[in-house]
Design a protein around this nucleic acid. Sequence first.
DNA 1: CCCAAAGGCCAC
DNA 2: AAACGTGGCCTTTGGG
Length: 583
Amino acid sequence: MLRSRPSLRDPPQSTAVSHGVRSDVGGAFYGRRMDGGTRMTTRERTAVVQRTVDGLRVVLDGVTQDVEHGGFAAAVSALEVDRPRWVWDTMDVYPRLLQAGVRVARSWDLRLARGLLRRAAGTPGGIAALPADGWDDSAAGRDDGALSFDFGELLDAQREFDRQIAEVAASARPGALRLLITAESAGALAAAEMHHAGLPWRRDVHEQLLEGLLGPRVPVDRRPSALERLAGDIRVALGAPALNPDSPADLARALRSAGIEVDSTRAQELSRIDHPVVEPLLEYKRLARLHQANGWHWLDTWIADGRFRPDYIVSGVVTGRWATRNSGAMQLPKQIRSAVVADPGWKLVVADAAQLEPRVLAGLAQDRAMAEAGRGRDLYAGIVASGAVATRAAAKVGMLGALYGATSGEGGRLVPRLARRFPQALALVERAAKEGERGGTVATLLGRETPPVSDRQRAVDREAAVFEADERVLRQARSLSRDRGRFTRNFVVQGTAAEWALCWIADLRRRLWELAEGSFTERPHLVYFLHDEVIVHAPAGSAVAVADAVTEAARDAGRLLFADFPIDFPLDVSVVDHYDEAA
DNA sequence: CCCAAAGGCCAC
DNA sequence: AAACGTGGCCTTTGGG
C-alpha cells in the first residue's frame, strides 16, 4: 500500500450512493454508516448456501430451508424475488442454476473472498493466519504444499461468512474491501453466465479459413499441405534436408550452418535478415502457430453447438485480472476473430476501454494534468497536445514505459519527459517501484495486495547481505530487486484497472438484464470479457440501447472508484455482425 | 513413461 | 549482460 499518499482514501458505498449509482457491485451491503465506524443501518438480506450430506441448506435471514439437489433451482428462484445477496461458492452451484434457467442478481463468493482476505491491505490478519482449508482455492499455488484440510468434510458456509464479514469490518477500509469482494463476486456470476451462454462461433467460417491458409484437414500427426510445402522451401534454402522447422534448436543450427548469425529464431529477429529463407520461414511460423493453437484440434475441443465456452478463472492472475483454463480464450488471435459471428437477427456489441491503465493511473494519483489530457477521447493525443512529446506513438511508448518500468530504449528515454509534465502520476508508479525494490508490498485502490517477496529472493538477499559477498550474488540480488520493483510498479495500475473492469461488467450485467424481458439468453447478455474489453450478444433491435448501457456502466465504474475526480473512461464501441469488424 | 524447462508467440 | 508488466499454451528436449 502506498500509505504515504494522502489521496488514497476509503472509497466506500457512500461514493456510489452519493452519485446515484445503483449497483450490484458494492450495493448497500451493510449500509454506508458502517464505513464511518458507527453502526449498521440498512442491512441487506443475505442467503447463505451450505452443502449438506444429501442436498443444500439455504439460510435466509436466520430462517433455514433444506432442499434436495433437484429442488435447489426452484428454491433459489422463489427466494430471488427478494433479491438477497447469495453467499456461496459460485462455481460450485451457479452453473447448475443457469442450466435450470435461474439467474441471480447479487452474490458474495466465499472462495474468492477468502482469497482476497488472505492477502488484503489493512486487515487484522485473522484470515491470513488460518491454515489452508477447503475454502482456499486448490488451483492457486501454495508454498506450504500439504493441506491440513480433509476434503470429505462439509464446509461450514455460515461460519466462513461470519469470519469474512468480521475481517472486513475490522479492516482499515471496510468499504473498499466490501466493494472489492462484491465486485469480484459479480464477476464470478458474469463468468459463469458467459460460459453458459457461450461466444457465438461459426465452425464453418473457421474451417474455411483453415482450409484456405493450410490446405485440407489432415490427421493430427501430419503437417497440412501448406506447412509441408513451406518446410520443403526452408530446407532447400538452408541446404538442410532433415530440418524440423518446429525445433528452435534444429533451426538455429541450420541457420548458422548457412552462414546466418542469429541470437534466436524469433520472427522479429529473422525479419531483419536479408536471406531467401526468411520469407518461407516467417510464413511457416505464422501458419504453424495457427494450426497448433487454433486449428482443427482446437475447433473440435472447444466449439460445440455454435458456441465457444471458455472456463474463466476470476482473479486467476496475481493482479486480479482473469485467466482462462486450456482454451487460450484470452489469446484469441486477430487472425480468427472473423469466426465470431452474431446469430441471425442479433448483433455483437464490442466495447473496449480506451487507454484504461493510464487513466486509472491518473485517477489513482489524482493527477489533474493527466486527467485533462484524457478528457473526451484519446489520452495519448492529449499528451501530445500538452507538449510533453511530439507524436502519439511517442506518448504511447513513453506511457507504457512508465507503467512497465522501462529504463532503456525509446520508452526509457521518453519517461522523463512525461515525468516533467505529469509529475504526480509518474511519482505514484515510482513510489510503487521503490517499495518493491526494498522488498515491500503494494496494494491496489481497493486493497488487493501483492504477495510478499519469495523465499528464493529472500535467500539471495541474505546471501548478498554478508560481508564481502560474492559479486555474482550481489548482481543477482540487485536484479531480483529491480524485477520486483517493476512488478510492484505495474501491479498498482494493472490491479486497479482490473478493479475498474470488474465494476464495469458488474454494472453492465445488471443494466443488460433490465433492458429486456425473458430468459437470460433471450436478453442481451455478456459473452466475452478480456481485461478491458467486452462483447455483448444482443438482439439487433436492442443494440443501440446496449451500446448506451456499456458506456454508462463505464462512467459509473469510474465514479465508483474515483468519486468526483474528473477522469473520463471513454470506450470504443462497435455494433457488428463479425468480431473482426470491430474498430 | 512422466514432467519440467526452454523457446516461441498470442493476448492485454 | 540485461534490458519493459501480467498471463496461457504449444512443441521440443532432456532428465528422472
